[in-house]
Design a protein around this nucleic acid. Structure first.
Length: 473
RNA sequence: GGCGGGGUAGCCAAGUGGUAAGGCAGGGCUCUGCAAAAGCCUUAUGCGUCGGUUCGAUUCCGACCCUCGCCUCCA
């Protein structure tokens, strides 16, 4: 079955057919972090969404080139750099490293390229020059360079491809800063921002004077330089639809590098935001979490990943600590099942594949219906447990189930439980307790059980014998 | 004001013109010396409200209520 995705550009679910016919290559760009602080749980939902898209495309057999920018020059960064008096690179380096570490904690596959805006100034300037040359950009009296939406439209291009724009009805200007009045039209946006005293040492020379890139231009410059003037997928949070992505289209298509009839990007995918404890995340409400905050509460990366991966990417998701607890329990159920399968499978060769994978991918083919996919997984878990308790599975069937799981988990990335080494003193305690039980010295057996519990291990008495399990926090 | 999402069980969350996946929590049971752990079973005459279309609506249409987002800082 073919993968179908909701394309913001056409506002409809479309079959995914890559632009390139050379083999099975797919080119994908994700708007990355602005490294001025630790990324929060809302950011992570979007990055995990991007990771899901990447992993599922790879699952389907495509060779994905995944590019994610690092925004290391922008207003917020400059403000912090100014406040902290740290050199730009030292400041951004800290948060960039944290981002990469968090990405790993959440088991996101590393993008193939993570270009920094500050290291692509020549490409940015070249793109702006092209726009100036084509008459779509102008230098304002303040020394900044702006993109002219009117000229862009006059050249036959469409502004407002991603959202229906009605400039007459929009509350334009409400949030526009007063110092941006150098623009000819209120809808125009900055390509190059002239240096101000507050920028300190952060500026680059350009044909228009010292300054720095505007907000949107880095994504156009870097995506096109890594992926070409037209590529398959561009992802981001839903808030980026307008103006960020709309402006990216304007800059990129305005530069005119696309082949006739081709767009800058074929499929635009946007992830919805999340609420935390039912409300918009904010520091004052106390529901603002970075990944690190949640790790400090004792939650694991895979639990957070799983929770963020339970709801459809286009729906607002309500992230709660109760939900995280539930996510932990759900994963334990899954882990139990996999552990039992592993014990049964031993070194057996896999038998016939279960129908799980097909149900799983049918759900994901339908615009990444991950909830439906998890539904298939947990139905399989229940079915497997039932068979296990009835001794209706043999080793090859268990091995086949594990093979299917492994393939499936290449998409979900929540991981399988590792076979945990049981320390010898714990095994000794367990054996002593078993001996005591056999001798019907139950008091002594219970004392040993308490002892094990105190050391963080819980005894599981099963029809097949006793074993110990590490207590999860 | 313009545009766009949503309202499905105690909580989270899929889905469908033909009678509601899945997870968590709750209840019952199995196993056990007792427990625990684990597992199985079970849990919405109901899908924001009111109308309409239809043999049949949670699904389609209309109105209304509530809620969230975007409208040049934003994942």
């Amino acid at each position: 079955m073919a993968l179908r995705l909701f394309n913001t550009l056409t506002h409809s679910v479309q079959e995914f057919v890559p632009l390139s016919q050379d083999g099975n290559k797919v080119r994908m760009y994700c708007c990355g972090p602005t490294v001025y602080d630790f990324a929060h749980i809302g950011n992570w939902r979007t990055f995990i969404f991007g990771d899901l898209v990447r992993r599922y495309l790879e699952f389907k057999g495509w060779a994905v080139q995944h590019v994610m920018n690092i925004t290391d020059v922008d207003d917020k960064i400059l403000k912090r750099v100014h406040e902290t008096k740290m050199p730009l690179r030292e400041f951004t380096g800290k948060f960039e490293a944290a981002f990469m570490e968090d990405l790993k904690t959440l088991n996101c596959r590393a993008p193939h390229q993570t270009p920094r805006a500050s290291e692509h100034i020549p490409e940015i300037i070249a793109l702006i020059e092209k726009l100036v040359l084509r008459g779509l950009a102008y230098k304002a009296p303040d020394g900044s360079v702006y993109f002219s939406i009117e000229k862009y439209r006059d050249s036959g291009c469409e502004y407002g491809q991603l959202v229906k724009l009605n400039f007459d009805e929009m509350r334009i200007g409400e949030r526009v800063r007063s110092d941006e009045y150098a623009k000819e039209a209120i809808g125009d946006f900055a390509l190059w921002k002239a240096k101000t005293p507050a920028d300190g040492a952060v500026f680059w020379p350009s044909p228009w004077g010292d300054g720095r890139p505007g907000w949107h231009i880095e994504c156009s410059a870097m995506s096109m330089s890594f992926l070409g003037p037209s590529f398959d997928l561009h992802l981001g949070g839903e808030d980026l639809i307008f103006p960020h992505h709309e402006d990216e289209i304007a800059q990129s298509e305005g530069a005119g590098g696309q082949a006739k009839g081709q767009h800058f990007v074929k499929y635009w995918l946007h992830g919805a935001h999340l609420l935390v404890e039912g409300r918009k995340m904010s520091k004052s409400l106390g529901n603002f979490f970075t990944l690190r905050d949640l790790l400090a509460k004792g939650f694991a990366g895979r639990e957070i990943r799983y929770l963020l991966l339970t709801a459809h990417y286009r729906e607002t998701f309500n992230f709660t600590l109760e939900g995280l607890q539930a996510a932990r329990t759900s994963l334990q159920r899954l882990d139990e099942c996999l552990t039992k399968l592993r014990e049964l499978a031993g070194n057996a060769t896999a038998g016939a594949a279960p129908p799980l994978l097909q149900q799983f991918s049918e759900a994901l083919d339908d615009d990444l219906n991950i909830s439906g996919a998890w539904g298939a997984v947990f139905e399989w878990v229940r079915d497997t447990n039932r068979k296990l308790s009835e001794n209706a599975l043999d080793a090859p069937a268990a091995a086949a189930a594990l093979t299917a799981w492994k393939k499936l988990d290449s998409v979900t990335g929540v991981g399988a439980p590792e076979d945990l080494e049981v320390p010898s003193e714990i095994t000794a305690l367990l054996e002593a307790r078993q001996a005591a039980r056999k001798a019907k010295e139950f008091k002594r057996a219970d004392t040993l059980r308490d002892e094990l519990k105190a050391q963080g291990w819980v005894i599981e008495d099963t029809p097949k014998g006793a074993r110990v399990k590490k207590i999860n926090i």
